[in-house]
Design a protein around this nucleic acid. Structure first.
Lengths: 201, 201
DNA sequence: CGATTAACTTAACAGCGTTAACCTGGGCCC
DNA sequence: GGGCCCAGGTTAACGCTGTTAAGTTAATCG
């Protein structure tokens, strides 16, 4: 009785331990600098055990990132829920995006920057948390156009352009930390505000 | 005797062969997918010979990229030389930047996207070709402000913001080729034009 | 001619992701 | 209850990787 369920729970719990250990190491040292052997060591299992729970290192990474990115999606969702002025909300969403990237640089790296060519990926896009975050941004842009805060732009293209620009500043700040940047916050806001300004009627 | 000079020439020629072989492989297959052994094989030398000419794989990569990026710097330079309207020139420089990235995606990846943590790098910035290209962009922005085409923005910050946005669209197009992008050219121009619009007086 | 040295190679190290083969303990059926 | 199965874990190994230390060979120079 119930022992099947217990095994089930134990399996799930080990899966969790692997994910947590992996996230911890990925965040601290970056994807490429963490080996399967080190993750296994951290949880006192043999390296091959991980392969019983995840397809390969890339899969493990993807699962870790999905969990993290759901936080961003939630943040955006709540920002959208309490929207008053859509332009202000858009600004907040974009800012939250950049802040998220800078808070979890290694997660951001692996999902959006390095992207160790996770196969086709086209099927992943539809359900991934990163995609969800993008869709929320798009909704906000649509609202800006609807309420005539923005001129009548192609919502899809405009959203992609906004995403591209915030991705750009996030990625550069992460990957080129030693470049003589202008003050970080000023730069981030400048990118966001300039794009928004450019879309205004 | 000129034999010393001849040896010198031969050394230089082997260095060239290594660079050319490395570039060829990097471009075709990407940095991470090319091993020192394969580069060596291509030029019929032992892998360790490469280490007599380059510090390590990262150094080899850097040298290859510098050569490629000088093309971009030259292009920007000539665009700047034949400048009539600074805004138009700025647009062209930015567009050339993106086109360059899409033409040499693997070079762009390794210099600006992946950046396999080339040590401090802060010393490299001053003399690198990527930096030179950025300085030319900055000059153009300064001219836009000087001729009152742009409002009185912080030239340094504005240039960085422009760079960030074009980097963003370039990087995303390269690393996420399967994403359902709007029409490529339209998207690129939208990013560039929106930023420029946002900076106008 | 003999010694030095530059240029290159061979062999090896320590690590990697991943797979195949093996072990082992608990659940199930006869 | 005894034998079997098999889930869940292990050990050993393969074929890579970047890199270094030691060894070889050919040319140069006093």
């Amino acid at each position: 009785m119930g022992s099947k369920q217990r095994r089930e729970r134990e399996k799930e719990s080990l899966r969790r331990d692997i994910l947590d250990a992996a996230r911890d190491l990925f965040v601290k040292e970056g994807y490429e600098n963490v080996s399967m052997r080190r993750i296994a060591e951290k949880i006192d299992y043999s390296p091959t055990t991980i392969y019983l729970y995840f397809e390969d290192k890339g899969d493990l990474l993807f699962q870790v990132c999905e969990e993290t990115f759901s936080k961003l999606a939630n943040k955006s969702e709540s920002l959208l829920a309490e929207m008053a002025d859509p332009v202000t909300t858009l600004r907040k969403i974009e800012r939250a995006y950049v802040d998220f990237g800078l808070k979890y640089p290694n997660h951001y790296k692996v999902t959006f920057i390095n992207r160790p060519e996770l196969r086709d990926m086209s099927k992943y896009y539809e359900k991934s948390m990163g995609q969800k975050a993008f869709n929320l941004l798009k909704e906000c842009v649509a609202e800006c156009v609807r309420r005539k805060k923005f001129r009548r732009v192609d919502v899809e293209a405009a959203s992609q352009a906004l995403w591209a620009s915030v991705h750009g500043v996030t990625a550069l700040l992460i990957t080129h930390p030693n470049f003589p940047w202008a003050e970080k916050n000023k730069l981030i806001d400048l990118v966001i505000d300039t794009m928004i300004q450019g879309f205004k009627v």
